[in-house]
């Protein structure tokens, strides 16, 4: 079991590497790299979460795209018949191209968000003197979604108590307006009050900020950073020169 939780810098580079290789490598290499990554993540402490998300999101998408491209590809004139089923050859290639790319890219992105939490990313940006409002939005975006959902269920509950029919499309539209307007009004008014509170907390300060403790990379982080940057440069050089 790998317990290593990397610093944001190597994880970010990892994401860049995945995105670059998703658009440069050949189909077979993409599949091989994705499978290797998946194997690697099975041993990671967050591997379960990563694999589960991939099974839930990526596999259905890949299957749907694969089926779609192999069976309905009208431009083609070449058709293969395997065991009585008519397949399009161009469609098969396109399906391989797309599914391999999606598998690699999505694996990379899902791994990225599981290896570093939004909170960790935010605190890294904060340490590096990025505007504090950016950190605020990044970290609180998801927290406010919970608040939004909570308030939504509350308003929905009370509207249902008052008897809100949801049969035809017109009634649903009216219900949407009746729920959304108070909900959005509440959120916007609260945000305006929060603005006063944040100003009082010093969010408008223009002085250079100090930090409680420095955010340093460990030796493993540094090695991985150098390794990944090397690979990125190699791939870029290769695609430029060839």
């Amino acid at each position: 079991m790998i317990r290593y939780l990397p610093h944001p810098v190597p994880v970010f580079l990892f994401l860049v590497l995945i995105i670059i290789s998703g658009f440069t490598l050949s189909i077979e290499v993409r599949f091989i790299v994705s499978v290797m990554l998946l194997l690697l993540f099975t041993f990671h402490i967050h591997g379960n979460k990563i694999l589960r998300t991939i099974v839930r999101i990526v596999i259905p998408l890949c299957i749907a795209i694969g089926l779609f491209m192999t069976f309905i590809y009208p431009e083609t004139e070449q058709w293969l018949t395997i065991a009585g089923i008519r397949l399009s050859r161009d469609g098969l290639t396109a399906a391989g191209e797309m599914t391999s790319r999606i598998l690699l890219l999505f694996t990379g992105i899902i791994a990225f968000f599981n290896l570093i939490t939004i909170q960790r990313l935010g605190s890294y940006l904060y340490q590096n003197n990025l505007p504090v409002w950016l950190v605020f939005i990044l970290i609180n975006g998801l927290k406010f979604v919970d608040r939004f959902k909570y308030k939504l269920s509350e308003i929905h509950f009370y509207q249902r108590l008052r008897g809100m029919p949801l049969e035809n499309i017109w009634q649903r539209w009216k219900a949407t307006v009746k729920i959304l307007i108070p909900l959005l009004y509440f959120m916007i008014e609260e945000s305006s009050n929060r603005a006063i509170a944040l100003e009082m907390r010093g969010f408008t300060a223009t002085t250079r900020r100090t930090t409680l403790k420095p955010d340093r990379q460990s030796t493993i982080d540094k090695i991985i950073t150098i390794l990944i940057s090397g690979i990125i440069i190699f791939i870029l050089l290769r695609s430029i020169l060839l």
Binding site: G202, F203, A205, R209, T210, T211, L212, K213
Partner: peptide, 14 residues
Amino acid sequence: ALSLELTGIERDLI
């Protein structure tokens, strides 16, 4: 500590 950090007060003092 956030408001103190933002106003640039020294680490020990914070």
